[in-house]
């Protein structure tokens, strides 16, 4: 390995993206404190005040700073509560997918054999199945709901983790330090958890950070197709899709959640980039 070139690459990129981290912290704080921050119940419908524009436009008022949607619900409140769903869906779906993927990757990599074959074939099936169709079919079977959306999105994501971890384990297994602990009689579980897991952490974290961003967008796409968390639930994705019929007259319905998704996803991607460069410069994306 050429140390000079690596060092040369790393220096400019490892500067922490302060802005992105600050934004993400803010979003997380908003999500946690949503009930205290939101001016009103995000699901409250008042038909007579529907399509109120934001406060700086004609007809708007500070009572609804970002306006109201087609059912007269307060956009700001929905935006605030929506951060919860987006973050929960993003984090839990990725954590679940990554968790299962890592466990299967460790197991298949370490034990190999029939287990390895079966699980990797299941992974092939998973990857070759057109995701949107799987999502539509599964959501139709399961019905709408937060848990089901998370389930569907995590089903999609376990394979890359399993493959990546398996590859790493296969490489590590033959290395001297693992052979050594095995020789002194360490148990399988202990070897994998204590000695192999830390070595695959870096690529997993990087992959996960990018998946969180993609999962948040995927939730929006599911909502667009009418397969969301639930009609009354305030989610950014659902807000965009509810506003799509009003793009030119009541742009505020979908513009604010659209902006929120973009900023959040952008921050997560920037942080992901930074993690990649500082944790594992050999990764490409």
């Amino acid at each position: 390995m050429n140390s000079q070139s690596t060092a040369g690459r790393r220096t400019p990129a490892t500067r922490a993206p302060i802005g992105a981290i600050a934004i993400l912290t803010c979003v997380a704080a908003v999500a946690v404190f949503a009930p205290w921050l939101a001016p009103e119940n995000p699901e409250k419908i008042v038909l007579t005040r529907r399509l109120t524009p934001p406060f700086w436009m004609e007809g708007g008022s500070l009572a609804h700073p970002l306006g109201t949607d087609s059912l007269g619900r307060d956009i700001l409140s929905r935006l605030i509560f929506g951060s919860r769903v987006s973050l929960i869906v993003g984090l839990v779906a990725v954590a679940a997918g990554a968790g299962v993927g890592i466990a299967l990757g460790l197991a298949t990599g370490y034990y190999g054999g029939v287990l390895d074959n079966v699980i990797m074939r299941i992974g092939d099936v998973q990857l070759a199945f057109p995701f949107i169709l799987l999502a539509i079919a599964l959501m139709a079977v399961l019905g709408e709901g937060l848990g089901n959306v998370i389930l569907v999105l995590s089903i999609r994501s376990w394979v890359p983790y399993a493959r990546m971890v398996r590859g790493q384990v296969l490489a590590l297994k033959e290395q001297e330090f693992v052979q050594a602990v095995r020789a002194i009689g360490a148990k399988d579980l202990r070897i994998t958890v204590k000695h192999i897991l830390p070595n695959v952490a870096a690529p997993v974290i990087v992959l996960a950070s990018f998946s969180v961003a993609r999962t948040i967008i995927a939730e929006a796409s599911l909502s667009f197709l009418g397969l969301g968390v639930g009609v009354s639930a305030a989610t950014w994705g659902a807000m965009i899709s509810q506003g799509k019929d009003y793009l030119t007259d009541a742009w505020w319905i979908s513009a604010f959640p659209g902006l929120a998704i973009m900023i959040t996803v952008l921050s997560i991607n920037l942080i992901g980039d930074w993690l990649r460069d500082s944790l594992d410069p050999s990764l490409k994306y």
Partner: peptide, 25 residues
């Protein structure tokens, strides 16, 4: 359809009937 169902649910809630909306394809 979904908006109308939600509006009806709100009106029912106003008179004390706890109504929620569930959508299906």
């Amino acid at each position: 359809d979904v908006e109308v169902a939600q509006a009806v649910a709100q009106y029912l809630n106003d008179v004390g009937i706890k109504a929620t909306v569930q959508t299906y394809d």
